[in-house]
Simulated assay, not measured.
Amino acid sequence: MKKGFVSLNEIMETIQMVKEEKLDIRTITLGISLLDCRGKDPKEVIEKVYLKIVSTAKDLVKTVREVEEEYGIPIVNSRISVTPVSLISAGFSEKDLLELGKVLELAANEVSVDFIGGFGALVEKGMTKWESQFINIVPEVLSSTEKVCSFANVASTKAGINVDAVNLCARVVKRSAELTASRDGIGAAKFVVFANAPSDNPFMAGAFHGIQEGEYCINVGISGPGVIKAVVQDLKGADFRTLAGEIKRAAFKVTMAGELLGREIAG
């Protein structure tokens, strides 16, 4: 028996994955481009950023919950990633940058997501004075917010290592931990330092929406270790070829479940 391209057995296996093997969708992350929010007036930029995020993500959590209920697959987190904020804030004062960070928090709270990432800079080859100032303000932003996450890409195979940026980021980690010491140093945990950062990254805390991406996109993060563990346990004594084949099959089904939910949410 088939339902579309999915057999009844595959449907039952997916139900088993959810109930017995702890399959869940770890996160749905909505990527949002802020490139159209750029401008010379910081107040206008900050207002545009808030309105863009809220208008784009206003139904995200509601839709996620509806899809979760319809398909019976738990979706643990709803998140947002935005264009690296340093790209839209050149010339901002430290006060403006801090306000921009707080506006990201306000927008995240307004649409009820768990985290918002993208308050970061791509400085693997060099830093402008504005980018240096931007990175310097990160500890204050992270300590004054709960949901905002930050990053810096400080090295790449092609460009080498920006030692000045590495030194600056080390200070950011230390300062962020100090400012959030009463909260177990959570500020440092919300700051990611990359080498060879991908062009787009939906994974917190280093999430950002790549500049080559479209206006927005949906990213799905799947948690399937329990499923793979169950496969291995059920195949004790099997040869390596059989084991590899079954792991591959299970991983494919987990991925298909994630793709299905992602398409439903995006639609």
Rank of each mutant, 00 (worst) to 15 (best):
S156M: 01
K62L: 14
I135F: 06
G262K: 09
G237P: 02
M256D: 11
N109E: 14
S86N: 09
K253Q: 14
R79K: 15
I186S: 05
F134Q: 02
K22W: 14
G126L: 05
I11Y: 12
Y216M: 00
Q16N: 11
D96V: 02
E66D: 04
F134N: 02
I218N: 04
A189R: 15
R171P: 00
R263S: 07
V18N: 04
I25Y: 05
K58H: 12
R175F: 00
A107R: 05
V6I: 14
V18P: 02
K253H: 06
G214E: 09
T63H: 09
I53Q: 03
A181E: 03
E94P: 07
S33M: 08
K253F: 00
V231K: 11
Y50V: 04
G226S: 10
I247E: 06
N201C: 04
G101M: 08
V192E: 09
G4Y: 10
E99W: 08
N136L: 03
M1T: 13
E70Q: 09
S78F: 01
S81E: 14
L122G: 04
V76T: 15
V232I: 13
A90P: 00
F240N: 01
D59I: 11
A181N: 01
G31E: 10
G258N: 01
L243K: 12
A250F: 08
R38L: 03
D200K: 02
G4I: 05
Q133Y: 02
L100A: 10
V67L: 08
F92Y: 10
R79N: 15
V163W: 07
L179V: 11
F203H: 12
V141C: 08
Y216V: 00
C37H: 05
S144Q: 09
S143W: 03
S156K: 10
E105M: 10
E105L: 08
K229I: 12
I53T: 07
F119H: 13
L34I: 06
G91P: 08
E264S: 07
A170S: 12
V193N: 02
P198D: 06
A177D: 04
M204I: 15
A188F: 04
A90L: 05
M12T: 03
S55Y: 00
S156V: 00
V82M: 13
S93I: 07
I137C: 03
K48Q: 06
L142Y: 00
P42F: 02
V45D: 03
T242R: 15
L100R: 11
G4A: 10
A266K: 15
D41H: 09
K43D: 04
N162I: 05
A155T: 01
R26V: 03
E105W: 09
N109D: 12
I247F: 07
F5C: 14
L179T: 07
M256I: 03
A188S: 11
A205D: 03
G72D: 01
F208V: 11
V61L: 11
A159D: 07
E69Q: 11
A238N: 06
T128A: 05
E99Y: 09
T29N: 14
M127L: 11
T83A: 13
N77D: 07
A177F: 09
L8K: 15
D59L: 12
G118A: 04
N219C: 00
D36P: 00
C149M: 12
A57Q: 07
A170F: 13
G117F: 13
I137D: 02
N167T: 05
G237K: 04
S89L: 01
I228N: 12
L235E: 06
L235H: 11
S223H: 14
I80L: 15
